[in-house]
């Protein structure tokens, strides 16, 4: 098993956190994982992205050229990374913020209104975790339980009060049809 995923969106949408969370969960399952962020000169409101590779064997380059999957949370990122998706790959889109459906190549495209769902949960900032939940339901790279445990590890120190709402978001995304 080897999965290369790029997560992209606006700075402030929790792109880096989503990548770190997935990496933490993969590590806790004993898998090999690399996480590489790109926030260069990008600022809040600009685009940010990170690359996560999860595999059963040790991983060389952490840089991903043609990802197996894309988790795209805003429209500019779709234009930038959409064309790079591997043929037959998986594209998960945040349809609340991305109406355009024309610029998508081959492969499986899944649209979910991640921001709307997050708003209904009562915390708009967990749209990233909603999207992650849907992605995990489609590509069972790590279990939902592991991500739940990883949330507890990453948020234990400073944001303990956000663990439950993130778990809710994860489940909402996972179960979204």
């Amino acid at each position: 098993m080897r999965e290369e995923l790029i997560i992209a969106g606006f700075g402030g949408q929790g792109i880096m956190f989503t990548g770190t969370l997935l990496s933490q969960a993969a590590m806790m399952e004993g898998k090999f994982v690399t996480y590489f962020p790109s926030y260069g000169a990008e600022v809040r409101g600009g685009t940010a992205h990170c690359s996560v590779t999860i595999a059963d064997t040790s991983i060389g380059s952490p840089v991903i050229t043609h990802p197996d999957s894309l988790l795209i949370l805003n429209k500019p990122s779709l234009g930038r990374f959409g064309p790079r998706l591997k043929k037959g790959g998986l594209l998960v889109l945040n349809s609340t913020l991305i109406e355009d459906e024309t610029s998508i190549g081959g492969g499986q495209v899944v649209r979910l209104p991640a921001t709307d769902i997050a708003e209904k949960i009562g915390q708009i900032t967990v749209a990233n975790i909603v999207a992650l939940g849907k992605y995990l339901a489609l590509r069972k790279i790590v279990s939902q339980e592991s991500v739940g445990q990883a949330l507890e590890v990453l948020l234990a120190k400073k944001k303990k009060e956000l663990i439950e709402v993130n778990k809710k978001a994860l489940l909402a995304g996972y179960e979204y049809k």
């Binding site: 990496s23 090999f32 994982v33 690399t34 996480y35 590489f36 991983i59």
Partner: peptide, 9 residues
């Protein structure tokens, strides 16, 4: 910059 910014176990 890649090795410095990347994370892995």
């Amino acid at each position: 910059g890649i090795l410095a910014q990347m994370q892995e176990p």
